[in-house]
């Protein structure tokens, strides 16, 4: 399966590219995808994306297709066409009343 991983916000600066294409097995999870991204781009990215316990960092938002996910164990299914889409965002905290 081909997975297109897009980066936004300041993750993009660390990845130095807005988009990566990864080829994986048909059964994969968000964790595996991020691991492979981190492998390519180094530990600094891991620090930003993942917490010390290896979970998704608080202000990182991952979308699989149009669905947001909070769990790294979310599996990535074969999309309608051949390519699944994973978007990785770093959101900044907001609000105050």
């Amino acid at each position: 399966m081909r997975i297109e991983v897009s980066f936004y916000g300041f993750v993009r600066d660390l990845v130095t590219t807005p988009k990566l294409v990864i080829d994986t097995s048909d059964q994969t999870t968000v964790r595996e995808v991020l691991d492979s991204v981190v492998k390519r781009h180094g530990e600094r990215l891991r620090e930003r994306l993942l917490s010390a316990t290896g979970e998704l960092a608080a202000n990182v938002q991952v979308f699989v297709g149009e669905q947001p996910t909070t769990s790294l164990d979310q599996s990535i299914d074969h999309a309608h066409d051949h390519c699944a889409e994973v978007k990785v965002f770093v959101l900044s905290a907001t609000a105050g009343g």
């Binding site: 936004y8 916000g9 300041f10 600066d13 900044s92």
Partner: peptide, 11 residues
């Protein structure tokens, strides 16, 4: 600001 790449905001 998110697209810009900063996490800093203050209400």
């Amino acid at each position: 600001t998110m697209a810009f790449g900063t996490p800093n905001g203050w209400n």
